[in-house]
Structures are given as structure tokens and as C-alpha cells.
């Protein structure tokens, strides 16, 4: 009904993406925050290219711009200047509403604090993105959600509410949810920050398996040991990329 009454509001058609594009391409991205203490420059001109199938770890000290960087990729935050291309879409040109729809289909987001909806069961949480973006047939969705839960190893918890699960289990559910619409790109902000080391390792292992299945993964972490499991490590320092290396990197 709203769509008919307020067409501009419901207009969320995302421009068609370029084909054969790289997973992520950032060109001279700057981000300036206005704070009570004046301007704060979080990103000072970032250039970054991520290929399809890469497992990229973004590391760096707290407050150096890691999260801001990947918020640019997910469209959660917008650059002050520069261009952000993700899977062939110019994210910096989209409206807030277009970003939401685009993100739902293209990017799976995993947060440090899981961010599951407390009033829905585990399986409902996983089905929610399919519902919002209206992908997959309605009848098909429960089966697909169940498959994803089995994939991340919490299939037996499907009908519980998030609060009754352990942290590791909740994060697995969050990962299953991020995979719901089969997005080519997964972005995770400190996904292991709230987990014990053993669970954290299991999550990283899961990510590795997913990249082998063809997904591109961007992960922010301050845990260098875990970062080493990635295929490429980007170090952010004071709003710039300080190091960018493939394979095992020693710091």
C-alpha cells in the first residue's frame, strides 16, 4: 500500500551492476567525522582492490579506522569523498534505501555482538533477510535456512531463541543469516571479539571453507593470530593502509 501511496519511498531499485567486476574497489576514500572537539579524519584516502574469492583480514589498533573502512564497503557508512565499488555497484551513489536492499542481496554482514533479533527464533532470524529481499520461494525458505544452520553446525538449535544459545552458537547463527541470500561478499567486524579462542578458531575455519566455495570475505580483527589464517592481510594505521600483504605475515 505504501508503495502505491509513496512511490518514491518504496523505490529501491538498485542500478544494474557491471559484469565481471572485482569484489571490492575503493578509490581515494576519505571519511571525516564532525565531533564536539572538531573535525576528525578517520580515513585519509584509501585505495583498495579485493578480488573475488579472497579472504581479506583488516588489522590495526583500536581507533585507527578499521571499522570505518569496512563500513564503507557494506554501505553502513558513506565516504566523505572517493568511490566505493562493490561487485560492480557504485555504493557511494546509492540512496540509504537502495543501499539496504542492495546490501541484503549482495553483502552478508557479521557483527561482533551477533545482533540477532531477540524476539525471533534462530531459524526465523536466518529467514529474515530472504523475507525482506524477497528471494527464494516462500515454501523453500525454511528448508534453505535449515540447510544453512546445518552448514554452520547449529541445526539442532533452530527453534530456540538467541538468548538461550552460547556466544559461539549465536555467532554461527549470525553467519548463517549473513549467508541467507547467498551474497558473493561477506563482511565481518570483529566476528570473534566476543568468543573464546577455540570457538574463534572454528569460526575462522568456517570462513575459510566459505572462501573455498567462492565467497569473498572481509574480516576486521585485532587478533593477529587469527588474521594469519586469511589469504591477505591489510593493516590500517591512522586512517591509511600501512601494509598490504598476501600469505602469512609477521608483525
Amino acid at each position: 500500500m505504501i508503495g502505491k501511496l509513496l512511490p518514491w519511498l518504496a523505490a529501491a531499485d538498485v542500478p544494474r551492476s557491471k559484469s565481471n567486476a572485482v569484489a571490492v574497489e575503493l578509490t581515494d576514500v576519505r571519511k571525516v567525522y564532525l565531533t564536539g572537539a572538531g573535525e576528525f579524519v578517520a580515513l585519509k584516502g584509501i585505495d583498495l582492490l579485493v578480488d573475488n574469492g579472497e579472504f581479506l583480514a583488516v588489522v590495526g589498533k583500536s581507533g585507527n579506522g578499521k571499522s570505518t573502512l569496512i563500513n564503507m564497503v557494506t554501505g553502513i557508512d558513506r565516504p566523505t569523498s572517493g568511490e566505493v565499488w562493490v561487485a560492480g555497484t557504485a555504493v557511494h551513489t546509492l540512496t540509504e534505501n537502495q543501499i539496504a536492499v542492495w546490501r541484503g542481496r549482495t553483502v552478508g554482514v557479521v557483527f561482533q555482538f551477533f545482533q540477532l533479533l531477540p524476539t525471533l527464533t534462530v531459524i526465523e532470524n536466518v529467514m529474515l533477510p530472504m523475507d525482506f529481499c524477497n528471494v527464494y520461494d516462500r515454501a523453500e525458505r525454511p528448508d534453505r535456512a535449515m540447510d544453512l544452520l546445518n552448514l554452520v553446525g547449529v541445526g539442532d538449535q533452530a527453534n530456540k531463541v538467541p538468548a538461550s544459545l552460547s556466544g559461539g552458537q549465536q555467532q554461527r547463527v549470525a553467519i548463517a543469516r549473513s549467508l541467507a541470500n547467498d551474497p558473493p561478499l561477506l563482511v565481518a567486524d570483529e566476528p570473534t571479539g566476543n568468543l573464546d579462542p577455540r570457538t574463534a578458531e572454528a569460526v575462522i575455519e568456517l570462513f575459510r571453507e566459505l572462501t573455498q566455495g567462492g565467497k569473498t570475505i572481509l574480516m576486521v580483527t585485532h587478533d593477529e593470530d587469527l588474521a594469519c589464517c586469511a589469504s591477505r592481510i591489510v593493516t590500517v594505521s591512522e586512517g591509511r593502509i600501512a601494509r598490504d600483504g598476501y600469505g602469512t605475515v609477521e608483525l
Partner: peptide, 10 residues
Amino acid sequence: IMKSIGASRD
């Protein structure tokens, strides 16, 4: 959260 997983404003 809902916005982050693809819910539009409407």
C-alpha cells in the same frame, strides 16, 4: 539490524 540485513525503509 534489520536494515543491515537488507530491509528497506518502507
